[in-house]
């Protein structure tokens, strides 16, 4: 198996190949500088700008109908964000959503990949295309479509279920997170499935032969050979899903007019968007966004730490 775990490079430098030579300066600059400049201009600079912005506030006085003044307020915006109960609640909600969405996504994608790869399916190509198609539908549009399917009076599915006595109302407060998770699942499961099928296909067939000779059945092969061997890809898919869920934004934003269960600050990103675009408080918005970014760092690196520690002997 020629797999070095790609993710590993995120956290450890153990295996960096030291034999690479220190190359000619000209080539190094030519390869890296164009990207570095663009990255500075379109990622680093705006982030620094946002951080600076998050330490200011716009103040008016009296009736608030005179011109605004910009005041330096240190960490006031951060304190304000973190002392707003609804913002804290949105962080908790996001965490809950992560717990629902990540296993749902990873397990679904893995099952689909295993089913397709089992070699028992008729028309595997057609199925692969069908599962993958939703990835081409932008989140805004996917949510508009599911919005129709979530409302009993316009949804053929819910009407069908109601006809056989099952009443489901997906946009109720206690099910709305699942309704949103379903949309993300629909869009990204096929994409993740492709990553995993690709990994499964690259398992050398000798391993299966050997397993067969040892008398291992289907299930045994899955749990003892396939899953352990595609572990790096599963880790990658999990990481993508975590990063994606932390930025949850478009789906609840588009669904929010359809339900009482989604407030304007349902997720931290929505709260930041609401502050910046509806309420014109880009300073507070910047502070909220920085908090989300920091959380994303902590959770992604935390996840990698855990899998690296637990799994190091397996690799």
């Amino acid at each position: 198996m020629s797999t070095t775990i790609p993710i590993e490079r995120l956290t450890s430098r153990r295996k960096t190949r030291q034999r690479r030579r220190s190359g000619p300066i000209g080539a190094i600059l030519l390869f890296t500088v164009p990207f570095a400049l663009m990255f500075l201009a379109f990622y680093v600079a705006p982030i620094i700008y946002a951080m600076v912005q998050s330490t200011f506030a716009q103040k008016s006085s009296g009736l608030g109908l005179g011109a605004l003044q910009e005041v330096f307020v240190f960490f006031d915006n951060y304190v304000r964000a973190l002392s707003t109960p609804s913002f804290i609640a949105s962080l908790g909600r996001l965490f809950l959503f992560c717990i629902i969405e990540v296993p749902l996504m990873v397990i679904t994608a893995t099952i689909l990949a295993l089913l397709l790869e089992a070699g028992k399916a008729v028309w595997p190509r057609a199925f692969r295309v069908i599962f993958f198609m939703p990835y081409g539908v932008p989140g805004v549009i996917a949510t508009l479509l599911w919005g129709f399917l979530y409302v009993p009076s316009t949804s053929p599915v819910l009407q069908g279920l109601a006809a056989i006595g099952i009443d489901i109302t997906p946009l109720q407060p206690n099910s709305v997170l699942f309704a949103i998770a379903n949309i993300s699942l629909w869009v990204y499961a096929g994409y993740n499935m492709i990553i995993l099928t690709a990994a499964l296909n690259s398992i050398p067939s000798e391993l299966y032969e050997a397993a067969k000779i040892d008398g291992a059945g289907e299930w045994k092969t899955i749990f003892l050979i396939k899953l352990p061997l595609i572990r790096p890809s599963i880790v990658l898919v999990t990481l993508f899903t975590i990063i994606g869920t932390l930025q949850l934004f478009v789906e609840p934003l588009v669904l929010s007019p359809l339900t009482t269960a989604i407030s304007s600050d349902f997720t931290p990103n929505m709260a930041a968007y609401n502050q910046a675009f509806a309420q014109g408080n880009s300073n507070l918005a910047a502070a909220m966004a920085v908090i989300v970014a920091i959380l994303a760092f902590i959770m992604s690196f935390g996840f990698l730490r855990i899998v690296n520690k637990k799994g190091s002997e397996a690799w």
């Binding site: 990103n269 930041a272 966004a289 989300v292 970014a293 760092f297």
Partner: peptide, 21 residues
């Protein structure tokens, strides 16, 4: 490492400041 960090930055952080820049 800095580049990888860029993967994690939410679009909401970048869009508005980028407008002014």
């Amino acid at each position: 490492g800095a580049i990888l960090g860029g993967v994690l930055v939410p679009a909401t952080v970048i869009a508005l400041p980028l407008y002014f820049l």
